[in-house]
């Protein structure tokens, strides 16, 4: 009976369909923006450039998980259960980039 449960939250099938297609165009649009930005910012070395791409990636991920994987319509509890552990990954990534950078300094600058 999950599906009936879901239908409580969502609208009619045609609304659902239009939402899916809307998401598709958004994803496609962001991918195109990604590529264009890549060439626009090619000679830039600043840190914020990486952040631009990462944020765009996270936005795309939001749409995939939210709409395609139906997370937007699930209970908040499930959402937090799945999304919050990702904090550990972010922590891990941050530390490993710092450490990689430190290795870089030890290796090439000393």
């Amino acid at each position: 009976m999950e599906h009936t449960e879901h239908l409580e939250h969502t609208e009619t099938p045609s609304d659902m369909k239009s939402q899916i297609w809307k998401t598709f165009w958004i994803l496609l649009g962001f991918t195109v923006v990604d590529i264009v930005l890549y060439f626009v910012l090619l000679s830039t070395h600043a840190m914020w450039k990486n952040w631009v791409f990462i944020i765009l990636g996270v936005v795309k991920a939001y749409y995939i998980v939210g709409v395609f994987m139906h997370m937007k319509f699930e209970r908040k509890a499930l959402m937090y259960t799945i999304v919050l552990p990702m904090v550990f990954v972010i922590f891990f990534v941050a530390l490993m980039l710092i450490e990689g950078d430190f290795t870089n300094i030890l290796r090439w600058l000393k």
Binding site: L42, V93, G100, T103, N104
Partner: peptide, 22 residues
């Protein structure tokens, strides 16, 4: 997947930045 991407990030950061070609 994160662990593989983290390995990527670590090794990538231990090298010098790409020399971009314009």
């Amino acid at each position: 997947f994160s662990s593989l991407l983290i390995a990527y990030g670590f090794i990538r950061y231990s090298f010098l930045e790409p020399i971009r070609n314009t």
